[in-house]
Design a binder for these strands. Sequence first.
DNA 1: CAGTATTCCATAACATTGTTTTGCAACGTC
DNA 2: GACGTTGCAAAACAATGTTATGGAATACTG
Lengths: 190, 190
Amino acid sequence: MARPTVYDSSLRQRLLETTAELVAKEGPDRVALRDIAAAVGTSTTAVYSLFGGKPQLLTAILDDAFRSFGDSQRAAAPDGLRGLGLAYRRWALEHPAFYALMFSGPLGTRMPCEPTPEIAAASIVPLYEAVGAALAAAGSDDPVEPSVAAIWGQVHGLVSLELSGLGLPGIDWEAAYETALNRIERSYAV
Amino acid sequence: MARPTVYDSSLRQRLLETTAELVAKEGPDRVALRDIAAAVGTSTTAVYSLFGGKPQLLTAILDDAFRSFGDSQRAAAPDGLRGLGLAYRRWALEHPAFYALMFSGPLGTRMPCEPTPEIAAASIVPLYEAVGAALAAAGSDDPVEPSVAAIWGQVHGLVSLELSGLGLPGIDWEAAYETALNRIERSYAV
DNA sequence: CAGTATTCCATAACATTGTTTTGCAACGTC
DNA sequence: GACGTTGCAAAACAATGTTATGGAATACTG
């Protein structure tokens, strides 16, 4: 042993929080490691020592985001498919930068920061179970995956278009979302 | 007049083609202006002289992509909603990097390269018209926008999830897409 | 035809990043 | 109290978008 360590879990936590804040404010590519380090009162070396580099730091942020998203989904699970859909949009609108980072895919961002697969997969388990329950209640023995994908794609697509600010200017996204949820309920519930 | 100009429309065209090629291969953030300039045998000054900078160059690429996408949609218009949906996915899978650039939104990429609004809007006119026709044929006088958004969201979401490589490992995306298209046809056609 | 001025472009300089290396500083041990 | 070891901050490095500079090629003028 030589000198007392400063790169400990407390600093790691503060780095995560500050980075999440900055990323939420202006996106992952606009935040510089120097800014993060300065905001926390350390140097960029801390990021390399504690995480390995910027991609790994963003991966940690990404995993936290998926966990938060998964929590939100689990909390809404008792309210059925519609509850899951409403919670989905609410979470995405509250965390637009995270949502973009989570679902932009490898070509969307330059940083190779894919989430831990298990954490990402766990976040959609509630939807999986709700669709399975709905199919079972309807007496259908269709496979679950295509329906899960179709429903997930529906809500993800609408939220994604809303966040992208693209096309259909002046549209009432909430009304469009209601339309889509109604269509889903009509197709699957009962 | 002094010396013959080299930064002409021909060079501009070659820059566009080379950039599109490189962007398609590895995404917009990984291509350096120096590489583009070297590939066409000029210097980075050409990009600044002909376009204004990297964002403007990417905007030009983006507009080209929306035009190509719009052409594909117009060509599929006679085949109805299902034809539009199939053409949508086909184009996206053939041009994944462009698709990501087109719909990643301001937070998804660092470059401020939003497309020209009219060009982007024109690309979904065929869908707009098909939905309007379907609603009219069904004798419905519901507003068109929410349905357009819902359907666009459905196909965009599925394609986007497929391209992101996220979640549902080993799923048959084509089957999921068929499921979604069936659901759309059942809801709107006739 | 020679000189000059003007226009244009490639090269080099600059600023900002992520990353790696270096050197100093702090603590335990002898 | 000196030394060696460990750890971190600051400086060096590399890549990239952007801007400034210098030289070169051509048309005009005498």
